[in-house]
Write a protein that binds this DNA or RNA. Structure first.
Lengths: 187, 187
DNA sequence: CCGATCGGTCAACGCTTGTTGGCCTACGCT
DNA sequence: AGCGTAGGCCAACAAGCGTTGACCGATCGG
C-alpha cells in the first residue's frame, strides 16, 4: 500500500472542495494550486489533469445556485425579510459566496461570474414584484448593493459591530431597506 | 543628459501615485513593485529605498482622510443625503478608496486599515446623531455596509445597472436608508 | 576644486508560481 | 495469466516575484 486510490469522481470532488475553501480564504492569486492539491491530498499535476488550468478550476469552483425562494406564494409585504433571511442562510451554509466575492473583487473572470449570478437570479425576483418592469434591473442592483455590502462587512472585512449583530438584528435592519428598494415608488 | 533628475520628494510622490493607481486597479498581489516602478519611471530598487518593502508602500498609499463634513451645523434630517453625496464625491475624486477596498478584501493589513478608517471616521458621526450612544457602533457598521456595498457594485464589480444610475438617483435611493440606520428607533 | 551626498541604475539572489511530460503501479477485464 | 487503462507521482521548466548590494554620475557646500 503506497497510496490509497480513489475513484476519479471522488478526487475531482476533493479538489473542488479544497479549491472552494482556499479561494474563499485567500482570494484568487494567493490560493495556489499547490496548496489546493496539498489540501486534497494529491499532486498538483492532478488538478491540471482534471480542470485544465487555474481559471478552469475557479470556474468549476464558483458554480453556484442562489436557490432563491419562489416569490409567488408568500405575501408581498414580507418579501424583504424573507430575502435577507435567505441570503444570510445561503452565505453561511458554505463559503462559495465568500470566495466568489473575494475573487470577484480582484479578478476579471470573478467579477463577470458575480454579475452573471446576481443578474440572472436576483433580476427575475425584482421583475416579479416591482411596480414598473423597466425599473427591475436598477432595483435588483440596489438590493444587491445592500446584501453584498452586509456580506462584505460581516464575512469578509469582519467589521466588529457587523459580526456581533445577531441574524435577527440584521434581518430587522435590512429587511425594510430591501423591501423599499423592491416595491417603493421611484423617489 | 542621460536621465532627468528629480527631487527626492517628487520621486516619492510619483511612486505613491503610481502605487495608488496600481493597487486600485489590480489589488495587492497583482500590483507588482516592478510595474509600479515602471509607471513612476524609475528602477524598482528605488521603491525599496523609499518605502522599505511592499507592505510599507501599501501602508503609505492607503493613508486617507475621508474628510467627513462637520455634522453640527446642518439640519439632522438631511444628514443621510449629505453623507451619501459626500461619499460618492470622495469615491470618485481619486482611487484610494477603490484600492483600499480591493486590497482589504484579500489582504489582512488592508482589512485592518479599512476597519480603522471607517471605525475612526464614521463612528463619531454616528455617535453625534443617533438616539442611544451605545448603539453607535452598530449603526455606523450598517451605514458602512450600504455605502461599501454601493461602492462595490458601482466601482469594483461594475454591475451595469449600478453604473448607469446617476449620482442623484443613487443619493435619492440610499439617503433614506442611511438616514434610517443613523436616526430611527431600534426596530 | 575637491570630496561628500544624493538620485539613480544594474545585475543578480533565492524563491514561488502555473504548467508540462514522462513514468510508475494497481486494478478490471477477458 | 496478461494486458490496457485509469489514478497518481515526480522532476523539471520558464517566468515572475520581492529584495539586495554594488556601483555611477551629477550636484553642491566648504
Amino acid at each position: 500500500m503506497t497510496t490509497a486510490r480513489r475513484s476519479s469522481d471522488a478526487t475531482r470532488a476533493a479538489i473542488l472542495e479544497a479549491a472552494r475553501e482556499r479561494f474563499a480564504a485567500d482570494g484568487y492569486e494567493r490560493a495556489t494550486i499547490r496548496a489546493i492539491a496539498r489540501d486534497a491530498g494529491i499532486d498538483p499535476s492532478m488538478v491540471m489533469r482534471y480542470y485544465g488550468n487555474k481559471e478552469g478550476l475557479f470556474a468549476a469552483a464558483s458554480e453556484i445556485d442562489l436557490a432563491l425562494p419562489g416569490l409567488g406564494a408568500l405575501p408581498a409585504r414580507h418579501i424583504g425579510a424573507v430575502l435577507v433571511h435567505h441570503f444570510l442562510d445561503r452565505w453561511e451554509r458554505d463559503d462559495v459566496l465568500t470566495g466568489l466575492l473575494r475573487v470577484g473583487v480582484t479578478n476579471e473572470a470573478g467579477a463577470a461570474r458575480m454579475q452573471a449570478v446576481f443578474g440572472a437570479q436576483l433580476g427575475p425576483v425584482a421583475l416579479g414584484v416591482c411596480p414598473r418592469p423597466e425599473e427591475a434591473p436598477a432595483r435588483a442592483a440596489l438590493v444587491a448593493s445592500q446584501i453584498l455590502g452586509m456580506a462584505l462587512a460581516r464575512y469578509v472585512l469582519r467589521l466588529q459591530p457587523a459580526v456581533d449583530m445577531s441574524r435577527d438584528e440584521v434581518v430587522a435592519w435590512l429587511a425594510p431597506t430591501v423591501q423599499r428598494y423592491l416595491t417603493a415608488e421611484h423617489p
